[in-house]
Design a protein around this nucleic acid. Structure first.
Lengths: 212, 212, 212, 212
DNA sequence: CCATAAACGAGACGGTACGTCACGTCTTTAG
DNA sequence: CTAAAGACGTGACGTACCGTCTCGTTTATGG
């Protein structure tokens, strides 16, 4: 977000309602039109706001959509199912549900594509979306450790690397399944995927698996 | 591709060189400008071709870029390292190398994003890129089965589902690592990822992993 | 004008009809809206033409209006009333009639105002409007000389200077009367003005006038 | 002007300095930018004043510029050269000098152009600029009558009409010479013009001039 | 060897959206 | 109540590409 009211300042303050309306309008436009046909003029109209107001707050389409999409992922909650596998399945299902929504589908990959040529945009995506949701992995592990399902951590650097790997695998697989393969990431698929993931993680560090 | 010379027809035939030049120009433009600033007029100019010639062969930017990017992935070869793990690591590294190239980075995610609202485009991506490369998974498994590293298949439907899962996990993880996390998918990372993957796949079907 | 068909050239030729339609639309817009509220987008719409077509042919509002107004003055004809005074009165009345039309009123002074900061525009006005109509003064003088009302010319440089002076006086007075004083330059006024002008010109070169 | 302090009123009074600063800033902006690129926001900034202050006092750009330009013409003085011709030449030269200044050039014709569609603006120009300077013609005639160079007036209505005609001729010719012909109204030109004018006026009413 | 017909280059065309600018108004805090 | 500050809705700007359309020209094949 960027509309900090500058506290002890003169002049008319920015409308807080406008921010909310604009982000909601952006999501609505993503649903109806998709990324490539979304225009800032249309978003402004939907939000009941002038185009200039929009440009005063966001640098362009990319930044706006990142913020609009980021809010979607704040709905993610770590369920407490009693087992690690259950918790993971629960989060992955939620993640898949969000990605199934057209506003996420349409917008997320597009800004990722744009971010390949825009360092600042990539950082914005990381800060607003990716890093923000790594909390789920960290919390999940801690909870599993409390239950005795996972051993306490050894080196913290190693632990961080594992979090990143898990995130790349989980997010990557769900995104690929949903957007490229265009198949639903439903309960059955999530169960299979989770089993492979947890088995792989549990066995890693030991000798590579060999078939019977 | 679509420029088959229609055999028994009169009139000037389509230039075969034009196709090649256009796809090469498209990749060059992707490198220099990225997806969003690439224009068909510019591609035509680079290829030394009129805009009409380009539109006579491709319906638009999306289709053109899919074809231009698809050619990149035909370079993939399954190496013969002697072990399953080695073969997998080899392929994943090649895949990562291609994804590290700016023309792939810039173009691939963009067309995937577009494909979320364009069924025909999604099918074109699947046919030209995804399904086309699943051969690698199939070949790799067959070779491992020949070596005795993997058991012979049971149900073919189950096998197909596993191929899809593997592809989602591998492609997804590499893409996420490269584009979203923006970290290199180098040898160390690939080794760790491959171990998790193979361990997970080997253990799956058995009881869920449990910590020692 | 500027849309010369470039003779031996490739590509689709410019539509000749568009030029005509645009200039007519410009005059219509001047009548309805006046200079300051005239927009090029509106002119394009009226002409049934895209805005880009308009910008392809004219650099901006100023150049367009000069061309649109210039055509108005091509209607001027030197009447043959039999006497110098009659001829002058006839032309001045026609000039006043054109200036009374709202499209001329509105546009002419505006471009003159703009031309004070734009050398190229001033030159365009001179070439398209002012110099183009000096033919009337020259013809009128020649005809009067033929009738014996005026002596044959002496020095041609002196003659040119006199033409300029006449033009400044005539055009200036009619414009000022019409636009600033906002009084009609009707027959009575024109008769009075012409008498002062011809008397002044006839007497000039001799001793300054003194009252009886 | 319109900023009379409303006498028996409460609240903070209007700053008198602001008026002066704004008009000066307007002229400065006219010099630097010309009419069409002059913006009220810029004038306000230059004057060190908020935009709202400016709008509280003037209705818009037109009215502001009329006031700013009108002050320029108050410098005009009727010189006393001893002869009518000398007096006229002196005033015309002063008038030409003012019109040569960029703030006058740029602003005056523009507001005249605007006034063709704005009755109130035309009246403001007449009151602030035109009628205000007709004093010069009246004074000049009176002085010439005192010297015996001109006969005493006959009908006052006829006299008024003559003043108007003189003003249209003089102002019109100088403006046309300066802005349209873009030639300097220098001493030589003024001398020639004055001779034609005075000769014409002296002879008018009598029989039209005929060549020798 | 010429006629037919399609592909070609060039570039004008009607559109749509862009991102910016100035307008004139409104809303805040300070005096 | 005025002032400075600055956000606001509005609407035009001039530009860039889009995808289509005319042109005149080139290059095959088939009569």
């Amino acid at each position: 977000m960027q509309s900090r009211t500058p506290a002890g300042r003169t002049g008319r303050p920015r409308s807080a309602a406008a921010d909310t309306a604009i982000l909601a309008a952006t999501r609505a436009a993503l649903v109806e039109l998709g990324w490539s046909k979304l225009t800032l003029g249309d978003v402004a109209t939907r939000a009941g706001v002038a185009k200039t107001t929009l440009y005063r707050r966001w640098a362009g389409k990319n930044e706006l959509v990142v913020d609009a999409v980021a809010e979607l992922f704040d709905e993610l909650r770590l369920p407490d199912s009693g087992t690690l596998a259950g918790d993971v399945e629960g989060v992955v299902l939620q993640f898949a549900a969000i990605l199934a929504r057209p506003e996420a589908k349409s917008g997320l990959m597009a800004v990722v594509a744009e971010s390949t040529r825009d360092e600042a945009l990539r950082e914005r995506i990381r800060a607003s979306i990716v890093e923000r949701q790594k909390r789920l992995v960290v919390e999940g592990r801690a909870r599993a450790q409390g239950r005795g399902e996972l051993p306490p951590e050894t080196a913290s650097e190693e632990a961080a690397r594992t979090v990143d790997l898990i995130f790349d695998i989980v997010a990557g697989a769900v995104v690929h399944r949903t957007l490229v393969s265009a198949e639903p990431a439903d309960e059955e698929w999530v169960r299979g995927f989770t089993q492979v993931l947890l088995t792989g993680l549990a066995g890693a560090g030991e000798e590579p698996a060999s078939p019977p």
